[in-house]
Design a protein around this nucleic acid. Structure first.
Lengths: 150, 150
DNA sequence: TATTAATAAGATAAAATACTCTTAAAACAT
DNA sequence: ATGTTTTAAGAGTATTTTATCTTATTAATA
């Protein structure tokens, strides 16, 4: 798999938040229910994104999480780095430490290309921009697809 | 990571075998030593490739493994499918089962592109063809790079 | 101020992946 | 024939990832 489950959960939750145009806090219970992600597990992942400043949280009744200004301007690439680390974008496809232009593995050149393609996929738009497009195209965020962008 | 460790080990071992132009059997000990892969673990992985018909094995003294005719004409794509399964090439980047053209996730279109790029990387050449190129370009197959194509 | 609803954080458990060890089976060599 | 070298296969261990459970902390509201 390209991204870890943690990472995918983090992206989907962030996209969920971006889909809510209001600036309100949404509880983790709501998010985990809507996206069908384990509540406690999601908690952990969003704590990472909170620590990185992409998400703001508020405790107590009516508390929850929302995207920070930084978060709204962040790309999925930023979130992937925050959760999975930069490995996907820096490492050799065969995991060979010294691999590079001078002494490439058989996949090196092609992988640099493919990797760029993946980077572009994740960097093309900010969460805000994806949310805009989501309103038109009604992007899927759940398995069943019973989710609707506001 | 794109490919599992098992898969990477399997690819490297297959490339190693392809680099030996002779039709001789090479012992797993030799391969695991040269590529610095755990002997027993490599055994398991190559057994899968043997079961799939990409590798031929021979027991007893002077025994070992070599690429079958099928194996020499196989691409890295075939080997990845044999070890990791087809998931990488069929699944949604966000792991959403129903994702497709009609109800795409935010990454769908781009991911179809990136995925194609990865597929092309793995399908571009057969092991035989990579071996040819390897002789010219001395592709790296180890961390240290003290490996040489024959 | 007490209760309640929410996140934060740590400890634990389960599952998947990665790796190791042991024994069996095959086939060559002497 | 016997011993040795090799792959084959199964069981077992370790590590990492994923998931759950429990307790603490925060803040609104009644």
């Amino acid at each position: 798999m390209l991204l870890s489950k943690s990472c995918v959960y983090g992206l989907r939750a962030s996209l969920y938040l971006s889909s809510k145009k209001d600036q309100e806090f949404h509880s983790l219970k709501e998010i985990s229910d809507e996206l069908e992600i384990s509540f406690h597990f999601l908690t952990k992942i969003l704590q990472q994104l909170t620590a990185e400043g992409y998400i703001e949280s508020y405790k107590g009744p009516n508390g929850g999480v929302r995207l920070s200004k930084n978060g709204m301007e962040a790309t999925l690439y930023d979130l992937v780095i925050a959760i999975d680390g930069p490995g996907l974008f820096t490492q050799c496809a065969l995991g060979l430490p010294g691999c590079g232009l001078q002494e490439p593995c058989p996949l090196h050149d092609s992988w640099v290309e493919s990797r760029k393609s993946i980077e572009e996929m994740l960097q093309r738009m900010t969460l805000n921009e994806i949310a805009e497009e989501g309103k038109e195209k009604h992007f899927r965020l759940t398995a069943e697809g019973e989710f609707s962008w506001q």
